[in-house]
């Protein structure tokens, strides 16, 4: 799909934006040179590399935040660079964690024919399936990749059934029907525990009923379904709040980096 062209700005706005970009770049370079001067002029490769790394990271961070103003060429450039670096990192990790120890070292660099034979017995089939997987790239000759997908998907589907039943059904049902009274607990703790248990049980059943579409929700069923919606709304709100706080936490991390690592402000 072709990339959406950037929004056209009026000529006056374009001039203002170019001037603002130049001013901001000057401020950024000036602040970087000033605050990272110790590292840059440390004379050691490690110190210079670290300072340079902080400046680059700060620049990339600020360019990415420029998207909050509007989509711009700098953001697009960094976005694509990020994708490329991510791909490269993934490739390097795949090499070091899977291809090198499992394919190259035991097969290609096998110390003896005996070692090669035993490596081929253990790894021959998966390596062959790996190469067959690559045929998915071809439109005409992609059928061998079906065997690789069949083994991957079949294994996970078959093994996943008992695991799903145990983890997501039995364990959840077990947790939902705990005893109301815990021996030795204080009256207040028992009261709170009973309330929580009942709320969880009522909520679980009503939410399940809400998603049960084989029966028309009317009469008493409508009430249960309505209770289910209430629980779902509270849960969505809680999840939303939790997600917001996670993102805010990341934002704090970036601001922390800009203030204390890039600008070298003293920590309070």
């Amino acid at each position: 799909m072709p990339e959406a062209p950037l929004e056209r700005a009026s000529s006056t706005r374009q001039i203002v934006e170019i001037v603002a970009a130049v001013v901001l770049l000057t401020i950024f370079l000036g602040a970087s040179a000033w605050r990272q001067s110790d590292g840059l002029s440390s004379g050691t490769l490690a110190g210079t590399a670290e300072a340079l790394g902080i400046i680059i990271a700060a620049g990339l961070t600020l360019i990415m935040y420029s998207f909050l103003y509007r989509d711009n060429p700098f953001f697009k450039a960094v976005e694509n660079l990020y994708v490329g670096v991510g791909l490269g990192y993934g490739a390097v990790m795949t090499w070091h964690q899977a291809l090198k120890p499992e394919v190259v070292e035991p097969i290609i660099l096998a110390p003896s024919f005996g070692a090669l034979g035993s490596a081929l017995i253990v790894r021959g089939v998966p390596i062959l399936l790996g190469f067959m997987l690559l045929t998915r790239i071809s439109r005409k000759y992609s059928w061998p990749s079906r065997y690789s997908y069949a083994i991957m998907i079949g294994w996970y589907a078959g093994m996943g059934i008992p695991i799903t039943i145990h983890t997501f059904i039995l364990e959840q049902v077990n947790a939902a029907i705990n005893p109301l009274f815990a021996p030795g607990a204080s009256p207040l703790a028992t009261f709170l525990s009973i309330n929580t248990q009942i709320i969880v049980l009522v909520g679980t059943v009503s939410v399940l009923y809400y998603f049960f579409f084989s029966l028309e929700h009317k009469g008493a069923g409508k009430v249960v379904s309505r209770v289910g919606i209430i629980f779902l709304m509270v849960s969505f709100g809680a999840s939303y709040g939790y997600t917001v706080m996670a993102r805010i936490s990341l934002l704090i991390g970036r601001v922390d980096f800009l203030l204390y690592d890039w600008l070298q402000r003293p920590r309070p």
Binding site: F168, V173, G203, V234
Partner: peptide
């Protein structure tokens, strides 16, 4: 909120997903 109503709804959803 996380331990009671949220857990109840999540459990219902999880059972459905399973």
């Amino acid at each position: 909120v996380m331990a009671a109503p949220n857990m109840a709804a999540k459990r219902g959803i999880m059972l459905g997903i399973a």
